[in-house]
Design a protein around this nucleic acid. Sequence first.
DNA 1: GTCTATAAGAAGATAGAC
DNA 2: GTCTATCTTCTTATAGAC
Lengths: 207, 207
Amino acid sequence: MNTKSRILDSALTLFSEKGYHSVSVAEIADAVGIKAPSLYKHYKSKRDIFNGILSEMQTRYEKQTATLQMNGSNAAVDADIFSSVSEDTLIQMGIGLFTYFLHDDYVCRFRKMLTIEQFHNAELTTLYTKQYTDDPLSYQSRIFSMLGTCGLFRPANADVMALHFYAPLYLLLTLCDREPAREPEALQLLEQHIRQFNQIYKKENAQ
Amino acid sequence: MNTKSRILDSALTLFSEKGYHSVSVAEIADAVGIKAPSLYKHYKSKRDIFNGILSEMQTRYEKQTATLQMNGSNAAVDADIFSSVSEDTLIQMGIGLFTYFLHDDYVCRFRKMLTIEQFHNAELTTLYTKQYTDDPLSYQSRIFSMLGTCGLFRPANADVMALHFYAPLYLLLTLCDREPAREPEALQLLEQHIRQFNQIYKKENAQ
DNA sequence: GTCTATAAGAAGATAGAC
DNA sequence: GTCTATCTTCTTATAGAC
């Protein structure tokens, strides 16, 4: 990895733990293994490093959702996928989303930074809401709406179902961001949650 | 309100929006209407102001939960209260908790500060988890456990029920902290959530 | 592209007058 | 208890040698 990327990476780590203002340029440089003034050959200011992180995250997120949305939004509603939605599939879907959010190094650090800076920076306010509220909810809502149409799930308000499915995942995610040691406990609760969710909403004859 | 309290109040407002490090002592003094050096007659350092906020919040929280827990933990399980749990009561309970968390000026600003500082300060990590994860979940779990024992609700894992009930409330709360303009939308979704929760878990004959 | 030296300013905190 | 003046340290950023 070149120096320019390493600066971005080290800065993100530091910003995500201590917040933008609590991190000095010297600290970033130190983490990279260079002196502070050298850093200005790659970025014209501290804010410029921050913007670099932001724009890289935007790119990554768009790429990631482009892949995800395909499964849920257009005509490619693969009947084979959804008709075979078993309890285990649903659990896998939830755990998969959860562990991706929690363990992807870049996603995780960026989420922490978003969390820390969300009230301070209007752009990050919007971004946080989009990435961790609106997008997951509308994605889940679309899925449950389809599953309802297919007759696999009881007819119910898909938005509320999405909230029921996603909100526990969100709460446990924020818990593990704070206290990583509690991940096993969170995973167990998550699995129980999805199992119970499935029992509640799934039509008996559909199982 | 005396100057010492006004300093605490102004500091909390600023810390909750920008974070501890992004706020200067001069800024706090300015908000109070005095000069920075005058502030040091009331607190010996910037950190001392922060600690003052923390200890006041601890006091308030303990007072608040002492009131709440009484309804849920001991022998004073008032059968009259719980036997009359209707859908409207449940909605009132959820909306009440939600609007208290969201509109109590001190609670709201302190939660924002917790949110911002949660990764930076070990004490606040613990405090956040306690106040917005463990305490509400165990409180709700105890209530649903009782309601199950009473035969009013279907037998189900009370911890998961608590998660189902509280997590959407938590997600919508963090949304409104970021974007207060979305409160009406959040309240509507919250009410739909509780209504559906009630339909799912409540025994038909108990209604 | 990295370094040392350094400027320019902001920040936390103190001294001492009133 | 509040002020002005000041100290010290930290921080962002630039200049210029190598």
